[in-house]
Design a protein around this nucleic acid. Structure first.
Length: 799
DNA sequence: ATAGGGTTAG
């Protein structure tokens, strides 16, 4: 009875169905391809050709059956139906049956008819292949009816219960609808009941995509694994790649939902099937992974694609290089650059920019300048010259400024304009202005500020902030305020950074009232406080000894939703220790520990300093051990704290021992502060020779003395009335452009006026030579009156 | 590519 069909059971049917058919007949039957709606996977070889014989009798019969089923609601005349179907047994073929079902236009009725046929002797009409197609027709009907999702879901269960395998068409219908509704459980059920030969790439994609979108990573991976098998029936295509890579990029991935191995495995397996992320996606993936702290995985991903011959271009490499640069991994940066060269991946201006930026940030400015020279030169070895852009230059200009070479930075800005035709932009000016401000050359910065406006380059809030901070840090707070108000009136608004600089400056001169006023003003003009400005206040209050106020700012900070960070805790801790409130300090330490805020090197330094000051050297040294065992490296500040403690305790020998240990054991070079501590103590102990020999030691080691050094020495010399040495040092102070402060003036005025040497003091303050003669010698140029001698030379050349 | 946060000396 199945002989209407040429059967080909191997592909479409489940094992169970195959056995059933083979045991009954063992002949080959072909399937009718009647219903191919929504067939996602159009595979003609799967589906048998349409039947070759049809008769008009049959067509008439279909009409009659449909008529009968539709007219008699659910209670059709069984006898009549049976008669219609069997009388035309030779012509009422399964294809006709499907025509009936399709024309019923109602899935419930169709299912009822199907079930009637199954119970009936005529169930032979529903031998398995056509049963599957009958179900496909019912699925199709249901999919167009109200409440289709529920119906499809029920039909899926019924068909399974009836032992009727899904056709590829049925699968397409349900997957399409379940996928749109993200019904992951149903999708998985479809996948599981579907004969493996029907699991085609596009169908699998349609299942995997909603699974990934619903975050069912494990389930998606199971299907992906099937797809990625070497001899897969449903190998991944570009769409598979794109849904997987998009999921990678949704940041759900790194570490949390997919682990590193899984990411790499997917990339490799997809690559084995020739599916790669495109240049943009790979770049985004690398950036995302790096941003999530997973530079290693980013490295592996890029290399996996490289190794398998996927498309890798400069932007993807640049993404990795950026982060390697940030983590100071120069070795791997070089490796990437070498690989790029080897693989013929052409670096672009960004690649060089990253390299230059890295070198600048590592203060290796000369090497950065060499890269600039190299990139604009054709090197004859296949390398193409890459013209630097404004960003390249700005990076270098900033690099020069940051190492205090602002004059060269200015030269480079000129070169950029004259030789390369790039006009300096706001960033160029900002960088230079900040450079000169940091060097204390506020007037030069103001000139640049005026110049940029003359040339039509708009200053922005960063320009403002550099100047305000520069003025603040160089004792010109009122100029800073004036300047701020000035630009405000011209329409340039400050921000939290502007206020932080000002607040910090007022805290430093102990004007807490003004600092608080500015904080309130900042909020009233709509700049939201951030952790830095809170820190600035906490630190300011702490240093002023106003711990209660510091605590109340800390409370405000937390109410605003910020956590106290290590820096803020250190500020409070330092304030408490200075006030010798050690109980409170330990309480704060316990709070830090409870909140999981790790102490850092500075925390240890504060505590070591406190213990040293209290002359509790055994505990100070024990803490030093703990600091080291916690993985911190003691610094010049740590040793400085110990040295200061021993000095204050009058144990200069031990203090000197530590200085020697720094040199011989720890290899920490001493700085000015260390020498100042020791020199001051030696002077106070009247050991002026030893102090002077330490000064020689400083000079030999290239450590510059500062005003504090000279102040201590002058006091010591005054005690012994060593005039000549004092004159010599006054000259050296001038030579080194080390400005006297009020303490210097106090000491020298008292001493020199008492012995009638005020003329030398006058020479000293005017920058003239002191030691040879008290009378006025040749002018060396007055360092306090040199403002605008040749300022045009400092300008960026106008074209 | 550019701006604001620290511990030690007097």
């Amino acid at each position: 009875m199945l002989s209407f069909f040429q059967m080909r059971p191997t592909r479409v049917l489940s094992k169970q169905a195959k056995l059933l058919l083979l045991s009954k007949h063992g002949t080959t039957t072909r399937f009718p391809p009647f219903f191919r709606f929504l067939t996602v996977e159009a595979d003609a070889s799967q589906l048998p050709p349409p039947p070759t014989t049809t008769t008009t009798d049959g067509a008439a019969n279909v009409n009659q059956v449909v008529e009968l089923l539709r007219s008699k609601d659910d209670n059709w005349d069984d006898e009549e139906l049976r008669r219609l179907l069997s009388s035309a047994a030779s012509v009422f073929t399964p294809p006709r049956l499907l025509q009936v079902i399709r024309r019923l236009g109602d899935s419930a009725k169709a299912l009822k008819f199907f079930e009637w046929l199954q119970k009936d002797q005529l169930s032979s009409l529903l031998s398995l292949p056509s049963a599957s197609y009958a179900y496909e027709a019912i699925f199709d009907l249901a999919s167009k009816e109200p409440n289709h999702l529920l119906k499809l879901s029920e039909l899926l269960i019924t068909s399974n219960a009836h032992g009727v395998p899904l056709t590829s068409g049925s699968a397409s219908i349900v997957v399409y609808h379940f996928g749109r509704a993200q019904m992951v459980t149903e999708l998985l059920r479809v996948y599981d009941v579907l004969d493996p030969s029907l699991r085609k790439t596009r169908l699998c994609n349609s299942i995997v995509d909603p699974l990934l979108k619903s975050n069912r990573i494990e389930d998606a991976l199971r299907i992906l694994d099937d797809m990625l098998k070497p001899d897969s029936q449903c190998p991944p295509n570009d769409f598979t790649g794109s849904i997987v890579f998009i999921t990678f990029l949704k940041s759900l991935i790194p570490g949390r939902i997919l682990n590193e191995e899984q990411v790499i495995r997917l990339i490799s397996k997809l690559g084995e099937h020739g599916v790669f992320p495109d240049v943009m996606r790979l770049t985004q993936l690398i950036t995302k992974l790096c941003r999530g702290g997973n530079t290693d995985l980013a490295w592996d991903s890029l290399h996996a694609v490289m190794k398998m011959g996927g498309p890798v271009e400069a932007p993807s490499c640049n993404a990795l290089l950026t982060w390697l640069g940030r983590s100071r991994d120069f070795e791997r940066m070089n490796l990437v650059l070498a690989e790029m060269k080897e693989m013929g991946i052409q670096p672009n201006v960004v690649t060089f920019g990253i390299l230059i930026n890295y070198l600048c940030k590592s203060r290796r400015v000369d090497e950065a300048l060499q890269v600039l020279e190299k990139m604009s030169r054709e090197d004859g070895s296949g390398g193409v010259a890459i013209q630097p852009d404004v960003i390249t230059f700005n990076t270098l200009i900033d690099g020069l400024c940051k190492v205090g070479r602002q004059e060269e930075a200015l030269d480079l800005a000129n070169r950029m304009k004259l030789q390369h035709g790039y006009s300096p932009n706001t960033v160029t000016y900002n960088t230079l202005i900040d450079g000169f401000c940091k060097a204390g050359e506020i007037d030069r910065s103001r000139e640049l500020f005026d110049q940029m406006q003359e040339e039509g380059v708009a200053p922005n809030v960063i320009t403002l902030n550099s100047l305000v901070d520069g003025m603040c840090k160089h004792g010109r707070i009122s100029s800073a305020l004036e300047f701020f108000h000035d630009v405000q009136s011209k329409g340039l608004q400050g921000n939290t950074v502007t206020y932080t600089s000002l607040i910090s400056a007022f805290c430093n001169v102990n004007n807490i009232v003004k600092a608080m006023e500015l904080f309130d003003e900042m909020i009233s003009v709509g700049c939201s406080p951030d952790s830095v400005v809170y820190y600035t206040l906490i630190s300011g209050f702490s240093r002023a000894g106003r711990l209660d106020d510091a605590y109340s700012v800390a409370l405000k900070m937390q109410e605003a939703g910020f956590c106290l960070d290590t820096l803020s805790y250190n500020a409070l801790l330092s304030g408490l220790c200075k006030k010798k409130k050690l109980d409170k300090a330990y309480e704060l330490l316990r709070e830090m520990e409870k909140k999981g805020i790790r102490p850092d090197e500075v925390t240890y330094n504060i505590l070591i300093s406190t213990l040293s000051t209290a002359e509790d050297f055994s505990n100070a040294r024990m803490l030093l051990e703990k600091m080291i065992s916690d993985g911190f490296v003691p610094t010049v500040v740590t040793y400085g704290a110990l040295i200061r403690g021993y000095c204050r305790a009058g144990n200069l020998d031990e203090a000197m021992n530590i200085l020697r240990d720094m040199d011989s054991i720890s290899k920490v070079p001493p700085n000015t502060v260390i020498y100042n501590t020791l020199i001051d103590s030696l002077c106070k102990e009247k050991e002026i020779e030893a102090a002077l020999s330490l000064m020689d030691d400083m000079q030999a080691k290239g450590v510059l003395p500062n005003t504090t050094t000279y102040n201590s020495i002058f006091k010591g010399l005054q005690e012994k009335n060593w005039l000549d040495k004092a004159f010599e040092l006054m000259d050296r102070m001038n030579e080194q452009a080390c400005n006297p402060d009020y303490i210097t003036m106090e000491v020298l005025t008292e001493w020199l006026s008492a012995i009638g040497e005020t003329a030398r003091l006058r020479n000293f303050v005017h920058g003239y030579e002191v030691s040879s003669s008290p009378s006025v010698r040749q002018q060396k140029g007055d360092p306090w009156n040199n403002s605008s001698a040749c300022h045009n030379a400092h300008k960026i050349t106008s074209i």
